[in-house]
């Protein structure tokens, strides 16, 4: 953990994610499902779970989801955003319709800026992709910040130690 925290990119990512209203959980090397941390979560990083949901699952059912887990492709240090795209999502509405969005992220997968982020993405090869930074928010009533306008009310990013760093740390 020591080495991971001293990485400036990683530190910026955490700071900026917090500023955007996101929560951080840091865990040691990632082993299997993190669902134990979120008892009511549906963990879409597990293939068996993915197979139970598809594009044809009814919206009414999806609307009942309390907490879902996805694997983020990478994070952006300068703004705390995490990239998700079609291949991670059995249904595109999932990260928005859930009350609590949990994103698992390999903390070695963080780029500094949006320019670097776009160098990593291949828009032409995906149908839909989104940067998410923090929970849904609005300040449309007298500029008071309120979380949970339409999308997830909470966002948690679970950063796990990449093996190459944690083995040294």
């Amino acid at each position: 953990m020591q080495i991971m925290k001293s990485e400036p990119k990683y530190r910026h990512f955490i700071e900026n994610l917090r500023a955007a209203g996101g929560e951080i959980v840091e865990i040691a090397a990632h082993t299997g499902s993190i669902a134990a941390l979120f008892p009511d979560a549906i963990d879409f990083t597990q293939e068996t779970v993915r197979d139970q949901f598809s594009a044809s699952t009814s919206l009414e059912d999806l609307d009942k989801l309390e907490c879902v887990i996805f694997e983020g492709s990478f994070g952006v240090a300068e703004n705390g955003a995490v990239w998700l795209e079609d291949k991670d999502l059995p249904h595109r509405i999932l990260p928005f319709i859930t009350q609590h969005l949990v994103l698992r992220l390999d903390s070695a997968n963080i780029v500094s800026t949006m320019e670097e982020a776009y160098d990593r993405i291949r828009l032409s090869e995906t149908g839909f992709g989104v940067f998410i930074s923090g929970p849904s928010k609005t300040a449309d009533i007298e500029q008071s910040l309120v979380y949970g306008a339409h999308g997830a009310v909470r966002e948690t990013v679970v950063c796990y130690n990449p093996s190459n760093l944690s083995s040294k740390g």
């Binding site: 900026n16 955007a20 594009a55 703004n79 149908g127 839909f128 930074s133």
Partner: peptide, 19 residues
């Protein structure tokens, strides 16, 4: 616009969803 580092959602629409 608001002093945020980025908007919460930056969505990229390329292809229609299935059906």
């Amino acid at each position: 616009a608001t002093g945020q580092a980025v908007t919460t959602y930056t969505s990229h629409y390329m292809r229609p969803k299935p059906q």
